[in-house]
Nucleic acid binder design. Structure first.
Length: 419
RNA sequence: GGAGAGGUGACAGAGUCCGGUCGAAUGUGCCUCCCUGCUAAGGAGGUGUGGGUUUACGCCCACCGUGGGUUCAAAUCCCACCCUCUCCGCCA
């Protein structure tokens, strides 16, 4: 949620919102409605003060005086009700418009759409295309089974089997350990959450059609552990010395993938259910940009240690989404497609999400909204896939990245089962 | 799933039956000061959040789980919901 006062006072802030698609007219309208809202508020409060005073008098009045005083109070009550109705209308209009203003982009974010990203870095040597893509490879080794998964649950589901499971748990354990070394507190979060958590975490109403709903219980299956981590300190006021609070959450993730028919239908790239290790940081506003660079560097470290070629892009304004002021995507090289595809990303939401969550920081004597950031540590399905693709051997086996071997019983090669 | 109890400030805990002077007693904690070789004890004062308005002092509004309702007036009465706890049943 946008900071209305700052939108009014801070020209750079306003410009950042305009760069993300808000029009100057929208903003002007919103600000003028906001000042009308404040006027209405002042009016209502004056009437309430009057009413409170009158009521107290009635309490003290003699029984004979009461009827007349109560009659007068009744008149006030009617006036107040009218003023309150006007105020709540004004309030709804203002929040309705305010929710549509995106979080202003940081000045370092390039303008434009999906194709207008800034290339930050390209690392590793692009792997030449192997004999099979990851889906074919997985099926041929018997470690991914999508056909039987379809019979079980429909399209875009997969069984992960055998050594791929060992690799999956190795990945999870390895990333968790790495992050705990950087003061991230591990967390297993609820994957079924209430509607208001989805709203406050910023996923509703925008992404509602991407989320599975359990209507009977009024609960929703999360698409990321970010929901649980963002809501962890909802409504709390944290002490400045406790910050930054870094969490690494593990959860299964569920996405309906509505509107993606025909895209990435084979294999593990786009499925309805996958596991993910997610980083989340509650930061003091002064250090939030440093924390974003930390997230970026950790994500890079993970892919370079897995020996997977990747590039880092600074996502352009049009592709940032509502909440992010800046976002880096890490895109891994996919040899079978001869292109980079998004595998992780990290964003600074500044105060945008925390404002709605009511998560604040107490600094000496001032209390302000703190800043939140999030980033993928390891989207397991996609990471497995990039390992399959980039570590495929000419003989159709997969060489396990060195760093993972200690985490899967020194498994070094995934080969077809001979038994 | 069945039965019951309860949600009040940082915490503990009154107030709710009998609506008004209750933003809320009291205790603990915390802060400032006094006293005291040090510490402990003791004494005085202060100590919620959000918002509006004001150069400022201040004044005002809202908040006693959440949302509605009754009333001139609600922590207190009514309705719905959420949550917590206890017992029984069931269960990994």
């Amino acid at each position: 949620m946008i900071d209305l006062r700052r939108l009014n006072d801070d020209a750079d802030y306003r410009l950042g919102a305009i760069r993300k698609g808000a029009t100057p007219d929208d903003i002007e309208l919103l600000l003028s409605l906001e000042s009308e809202r404040k006027q209405a508020l002042t009016g209502v409060e004056a009437l309430r003060a009057e009413q409170n005073a009158v009521s107290k008098e009635i309490g003290r009045a003699t029984p004979e005086d009461r009827p007349a005083k109560i009659e007068a109070a009744n008149q006030l009550k009617i006036k107040l009700a009218e003023a309150e109705t006007a105020l709540s209308t004004a309030q709804e209009t203002v929040t309705g418009l305010a929710l549509q203003i995106p979080n202003p982009a940081h000045s370092s974010v390039p303008d434009g759409g999906e194709e207008d990203f800034e290339l930050v870095r390209e690392a590793g040597e692009r792997t030449p295309a192997g004999p099979m893509d990851h889906a074919e490879l997985g099926e041929s080794l018997g470690i991914v089974d999508t056909q039987r998964a379809v019979r079980m649950s429909g399209s875009r589901f997969a069984y992960i089997l055998g050594d791929a499971v060992r690799l999956q748990f190795a990945l999870i354990q390895w990333t968790m350990n790495k992050l705990m070394g950087h003061d991230f507190v591990p967390a297993v979060v609820p994957v079924l959450v209430r509607e208001d958590m989805m709203v406050d975490a910023g996923f509703f109403p925008t992404d509602r059609d991407q989320v599975y709903e359990l209507e009977r219980d009024g609960l929703f299956l999360v698409g990321t552990a970010e929901v649980g981590l963002a809501g962890l300190h909802r409504g709390e006021r944290l002490d400045a010395v406790e910050l930054p609070k870094r969490y690494v959450g593990y959860s299964s993730c569920f996405r309906r993938e509505a509107g993606t028919y025909g895209k990435d239908t084979a294999g593990l790239f786009r499925v309805h259910q996958f596991d993910k290790v997610e980083m989340f940081i509650y930061s003091h506003p002064d250090t939030a940009w440093d924390e974003l660079e930390l997230l970026r560097s950790l994500e890079e470290e993970i892919f370079s240690e897995l020996e997977i070629p990747y590039r880092v892009i600074n996502v352009a304004t049009g592709d940032l989404g509502n909440a992010a002021a800046k976002k880096y995507d890490i895109e891994a090289w996919i040899p079978s497609q001869q292109t980079y595809r998004e595998v992780t990303s990290c964003s600074n939401y500044t105060d945008f999400s925390a404002r709605r969550m009511g998560t604040r920081v107490k600094d000496d004597d001032a209390t302000t909204v703190l800043h939140t950031l999030n980033g993928t540590a390891c989207a397991v399905g996609r990471t497995l896939l990039t390992i399959f693709e980039n570590h495929q051997q000419p003989d159709g086996t997969i060489s396990v990245p060195e760093v993972l071997r200690p985490y899967c019983g020194d498994l070094d090669v995934i080969a077809p089962r001979t038994s």
